[in-house]
């Protein structure tokens, strides 16, 4: 079985094999204290129907990456380098009006805290309709109101809500129902890529499970690729096919979900997996020692070296490891695997 690293995939990005290819993406925030490299050279590739989870500590750059994929980075943030190919087209080069057509049509976001992103004074169905009308490519093809109503009802049904919900205001809905409305908006134009940024945090397990299963069903129906962002490793295990681990703005490991959980390569991933409580046995709680770095003053060499139990003196604090494929389908950036090549 051969596999493509993001870099080789990017070279063949004109091919239709991948829905999304990200190549050496860099997003910086210019702040009075200095430049924050929130996304610092991330590369990845997604095929249709694939479910990639991006995990990492708070502040590791997950939401910044999600917003950049939508080309919604706001000042003081800036995409300073890299490429994002959506269906073969480099969206970093597009003018805003053109990008606007792609949003919702080609790539859609369920934002972090989506349930608070709804307009409080607008009925649910009007919010869904607005999204559709805003993004229809051809003004002449604007559907009539009866057709729109039908579409809203179909969308609500697909996320498990009844047509009455369309006539309600957000404050009349529970958190789980609002989250599903945000998801209905995201799929309203059958995008090929769905980015879901912590779609269920703050919801309880029963509702969480319903929402993730809804997302999975929708994605299968559309054959869309999904990027699920979050730090709930339970949800990741339940939902994803592949997992990418971010640390201080960098992707430090990427691989198939099963392997990430049973045989993590990067020491950070290992600690992350070990810190998870389970229901099988009562374990000692182990956190990851040390603190996440401030992105303003990153450690030299490997950014993880001050917290790393496998620290190699003389190497890790001086040389930044390359992110590379070390086994089929497994990529990581760690000196432990420097000599190993796939």
């Amino acid at each position: 079985m051969t596999s493509l690293t993001a870099a080789t995939a990017a070279r063949s990005s004109a091919s239709s094999e991948h829905s999304l290819v990200v190549e050496d993406l860099r997003v910086h925030y210019d702040t009075p204290e200095g430049v924050i490299k929130a996304v610092d050279g991330v590369s990845l590739a997604l095929k249709p129907g694939e479910r990639l989870a991006l995990v990492g500590e708070s502040g590791s750059g997950k939401s910044t990456l999600a917003m950049a994929l939508m080309r919604l980075t706001k000042a003081p943030g800036r995409i300073v380098a890299g490429h994002i190919y959506l269906g073969g087209k480099d969206i970093t080069l597009l003018e805003e009006p053109e990008m606007r057509q792609l949003r919702l049509n080609e790539i859609a976001l369920v934002p972090q805290g989506a349930m608070n992103s709804l307009n409080p004074v607008m009925r649910v169905k009007h919010q869904i309709i607005d999204g559709i009308l805003d993004h229809v490519a051809d003004r002449k093809q604007t559907p009539d109101s009866h057709e729109l109503e039908e579409r809203v009802n179909r969308l609500l049904a697909r996320v498990g809500l009844s047509p009455e919900v369309g006539r309600m205001f957000p404050h009349e809905l529970s958190g789980g129902m609002k989250q599903r409305v945000a998801m209905a908006i995201a799929i309203s134009l059958s995008p090929r890529v769905i980015v879901a940024d912590e779609p269920t945090s703050a919801l309880d397990v029963v509702v969480q499970r319903q929402i993730m299963q809804t997302l999975g069903r929708l994605q299968q129906g559309l054959d869309a690729a999904v990027i699920l962002i979050g730090h709930d490793m339970g949800l990741v295990a339940q939902f994803a096919n592949r997992v990418g681990v971010m640390y201080a703005g960098k992707l430090v490991e990427l691989g198939p979900v099963q392997q990430i959980f049973t045989e993590p390569l990067h020491p950070y991933t290992k600690l992350l997996i070990e810190s998870l409580p389970n229901l099988e046995e009562k374990k000692k709680f182990i956190g990851i020692p040390g603190l996440p770095p401030t992105l303003l003053r990153l450690p030299s060499g490997c950014v993880f070296h001050p917290r790393c139990p496998s620290f190699i003196k003389g190497t890790c604090e001086t040389v930044a490891p390359h992110y590379q494929e070390v086994r089929p389908e497994r990529e990581t950036s760690c000196h432990l695997y420097a000599g190993v090549r796939a």
Partner: peptide, 27 residues
């Protein structure tokens, strides 16, 4: 039982079954 079945286990070998979606308590 519903709560325990819904726990997202951090183990890809122990997947959720399908939930009988029986509405939100709030409703």
């Amino acid at each position: 039982q519903l709560l325990v079945q819904s726990i997202p286990r951090p183990d890809p070998r122990k997947l959720w079954g399908d939930v009988p979606a029986r509405g939100d308590a709030e409703a």
